[in-house]
Structure formats: C-alpha cells, structure tokens
Design a binder for these strands. Sequence first.
DNA 1: CCTTATTTAGAACAAATGTACTAATTATTT
DNA 2: AAATAATTAGTACATTTGTTCTAAATAAGG
Lengths: 202, 202
Amino acid sequence: MDTKSIILKTALELYNTQGVHAVTSRHIAAEMGISAGNLHYHFKQTDEIIKTLYEQLATSFDTIISGMESQESVQLETLFESTVRSFELVYKYRFIFLHFVEISMRIPSIRKDYYALTQRRTKEFLSIFEQLKTAGIFRKDLPDNLWESLVQQIFIVGDFWLSNNELTVRLKGSNAVKHYSQLFIRMFYPYLTPAALENIPV
Amino acid sequence: MDTKSIILKTALELYNTQGVHAVTSRHIAAEMGISAGNLHYHFKQTDEIIKTLYEQLATSFDTIISGMESQESVQLETLFESTVRSFELVYKYRFIFLHFVEISMRIPSIRKDYYALTQRRTKEFLSIFEQLKTAGIFRKDLPDNLWESLVQQIFIVGDFWLSNNELTVRLKGSNAVKHYSQLFIRMFYPYLTPAALENIPV
DNA sequence: CCTTATTTAGAACAAATGTACTAATTATTT
DNA sequence: AAATAATTAGTACATTTGTTCTAAATAAGG
C-alpha cells in the first residue's frame, strides 16, 4: 500500500477514535512513523485528508443508492438491508458524522456536496415510499406532506444516531449499528398497513 | 450588568455565530473591549464559560419539563406547546447542539449531566404517551417497544434538527424553529387514532 | 481618610499547529 | 550508468492559544 493510502487509513483511525479537533497532521505522521514533512508532501493542506475521506464516504453511499435503484421492485427487505449497510458505512466514517457541522464549516465544499447527496437520497426514498404504497405495505390514508416530513426525519436520525449514541449509551461497533438501525427501521412501522404489520416481528 | 454576565452573553453570541472552535477567550474579551487577563480573572478556565452556558440551558429545560408535569391532564396541545418552547431554547443555545459531541468530549461533566437529563425526559415522555393513549388520542394497537423507540427517535430529532438545518437549508431564527418543530410534531401523527387525526390540520 | 479587597490591563511564556523550505535518499527513466 | 523525478526527514517560522503574573486602578469597608 502506498503512503497516501496509509495516511488516509491512519487518519480515519485516529479521527474516529480521538475526534477531528484532537488529531493534527503531526499526530498522523507520528502514528505512521513518518515525518510531518513527508505527510505534507502527499497532502499539502491537512484538510485535504478530511476532504478525501469524505469523498470516499460519498462514493460508497452512492453505490448503496444505485444498488437500491437497480432493483426491479423494492420490498421492505430491500429497504432494511440498505439501511443496515448505510449504518455500517456511517460507523466506518463516524468521525464525519460526529463532527459534521464543524467539518462542514472548515471545508465548505463538503457541505455543498452533502446537500446534493441529500437531494438524491430524498428522491430515492419518496420513490420507494410510492412503490411500497401501491404494494399495499405502506398506508394510503396519510397526507402527502407527512411522507415528505418522514424523509427529513429519517435523514436526521440516519445522520445523527451516532452523536446520540456518543452522548448517551455509547454502544460500540456492531452493537451500535444493530441497535440504531433497528431504531431507524422502526420509524416506518406506524406507517405500515395492518396487513404488513402482521408479517413483521417488532 | 456585571462583567461575568456580559462575558457569558458575549460568549453565547460569538459561539452561536462563529462556532466553538473558532472562538477563543481573546476573541470574547476583544468583542467586549476588555483585556484577556480580566476575562480570565472571572473564568480561570475558558471551558468554564461553556460549562456555565450549558448549565443555563439545562436549568431552562428542567423548567419546561416541570411545567408539563404540573398539568393535571396532558393534551396534545400541551405537548406541542412544550415542543415549540424547547425548540426555541435549542435555538438560543444552538452552539451547544451544533457542536454537542465536541463539547461533551472537551467537558465530560456536560455529557454526564446531559445523560441524566435524557433519563428525566424519557420518563416524562413515556408517561405522556400513556396519558394520551388512555385519552383515545394515541393508538393502542402498537407494541410497547415501539413507544420506547419513538422516545429515542424524537430525542435525536429534537437534539440534531439544527445540525441538519446547518448542513442543508440553513433557515434562520424563527423560521428554523417553526419548520423543525412542525417536523418534530409530525413524528406523532402516524401514532394518532383516526379520530384524533381528524381534529388536526396537517 | 486610610486600609483592604476587587477588578482590570498588559506583558510574558510555553506549547501546539499549519506550513514552507532544504537537503538527503530512493526510485524511475533513458 | 547517468540523469531526472519522486519521496522522505528534519528544521524553521509565524501564528495562535490558554494561562499566569505583575502592577495599576477602582471600589468597599471601617
């Protein structure tokens, strides 16, 4: 593995465990056993490391989204599977979500990019909701704007469950992913038709 | 107003507009037109300013909670009114919520205190849910653990709606409060009985 | 009015940080 | 093998930050 990749890997590890504010280019270099000068040869600005890590995350997210879109008919299972994969991704790049506002202030292009990603995800979810309504899985007796609100609600939970975890129970690794992805999935339950509810273990 | 109060007021203003990471004790002193030495006479550690501001927030939150508890019977309106007041409070101390994880890492006592506050709020909400179920406003056909999940979900949205706002639409002031408190309130809609739904404008 | 306590300004310090620069070493190309 | 390019270590610098210290100014108490 080349130096640049090791820098990214080490930085991700350190950012995740110590937080963005506590990790400097010197720390990353020291952890790898290279000089700070060398690190800055590969990344002129320290922020470029964060930016690159964010881009890795965004790319992986898009893969999940297009994976869902490629399905001919979306089942509830598809939605749940994608959720778990998304949550694993969030955990992998958890420092970004734990310090999202800070990072977006430090590197404005990240906020811009994230906003665009949000737009894509919104469309995707609304389309899935429609499919599940016609499939008799989601309720049809609720007004349209409630579904739009639901999308925003699930984005907030999807982006900040880790922050909540950090401030409260502090579950680790797959325990955190399991607990919070279930919490996320349960947001859909009251939107299910009685028939669909019967087939789901709560 | 004494110097200590002005420091707190100025710090809140600066933290809210520039973010915790960008504001130093020197900035606060400069903004007030006093010396950094003077500021450190009143707050030996800069973190004490943040800690004090957090305590102000926590106290105000407890006032809202006990205000709800004092009601003989909780109506949906009571819940909604408290929501709006909570959201206004979050906006007033927005720097805390926008940088919650950072702050809790910097000042561990804040995390501890917040966790305790969360416990109190959880009890409060579960009790309200029970009352609203017996009043025929909330559905009775849903399993218990779904209500516990709902409490966690509304905490995440209640604590991080501002972060979502910052990363996306960036509504300001009362516009943000209005939009997101409505978003919050709508989380309860699919839990309402058909009868209760009819009396609510969506 | 005199003494004491409080408050304030300003200088000073040590530590940390991002980054630039230089020179040496290593790899690649011709 | 020679020349060129890429990579690396180490040093240096300017800036910032939290904090401490000293001395002056102001307020309070007797």
